[in-house]
Amino acid sequence: MSISKRCSTAPTLFKRLKNYFINRRGREALPVRLHWRRLYVLPSKPGLFFFLIGSTMMLAGLNFNNNMSLMLVFLLFGLAQVILYKTFFNLKNVVIDQVHAAPVFAGERYTLRLQLLAPTDRYQIQVKMDESVDTANILHQSGQWQLAADAEQRGYQPLPRLKLLTRYPLGLVTVWAYCQPKATVLVYPRPEQPCPSFAHHGGVEGPDSSVVQGDEMDDLRTYQSGDPIRDIAWKKSAQGQGTFVKKYHLKQGKELCFDYSQLNLKDIEKRLSRLTAWVVEAERQTLTYQLKLPQFDSGMGRGERHYHECLTALAVFGPGGVS
């Protein structure tokens, strides 16, 4: 029984040890220089085939005492050796200079932009992050890579481990290195889809745009969870055909206030999701808005900076945003 148990745990144990070994440096602050001690070198599949062909040729040359065949074989082995160093030098001393991913919403894919530096030109360096692969060169001392990954959770998410790999110039040898950069990608909460209409949280009404269309009975919509209670069209709802809420169409210039504490939703994530949707929608319609969270108040505003400030606050809010 114990044997079978050991058999089943052996690969995972090996994998764990391997991961432990690879990650032994922990998260590293950039820039990271790929010192030669960090590089792993092994022959690639074509390299093994090259070796196989070379060995066959050597056997033939030795058997028939054919000196020129032997010379050719040794030339090829010498070539393999040169290529080994060439490939090694192609990755040695590469500096992982910067990684950066523009913030995205949870559920989207984020694009990680990565810059590598090297004092000399380097070619065909592959960077892998989970499934995503990109290959580029370092020319004129710098090169850029783009990788994509799914943003699942909101908050400052750590980046997955990067694998830098090169087989240049002949593909006979693979040289690679791992790095876990101490960088994060900011993931905003997933905006609620479709965007619920703006709640009336007592935002200051703008001077020239206080018109609220559909204040009358003809413009109602069905109640969604989380709608403020005071927006409920009681009269209409009382008719027993469902609960209705007054629908506000806001003209440009309306100043909105999105308040976390006023949302009538149990789940924190759902609240954040709705607030996010509102912030996005308000920015899209170039409205002025304010976001209020416990311990955060953005103040009235609009524009890129304000928008990102609000979304960042939403992303890092509470327990879910810390990871």
Partner: peptide, 24 residues
């Protein structure tokens, strides 16, 4: 690369053990 491989090839050629007679 081939030029760099050449010294290796020559040295290995000189030092590699030879068969006195063919195996096959």
């Amino acid at each position: 690369w081939l030029a760099m491989a050449l010294p290796f090839a020559v040295l290995f050629f000189l030092a590699f053990p030879r068969l006195g007679s063919p195996i096959w």
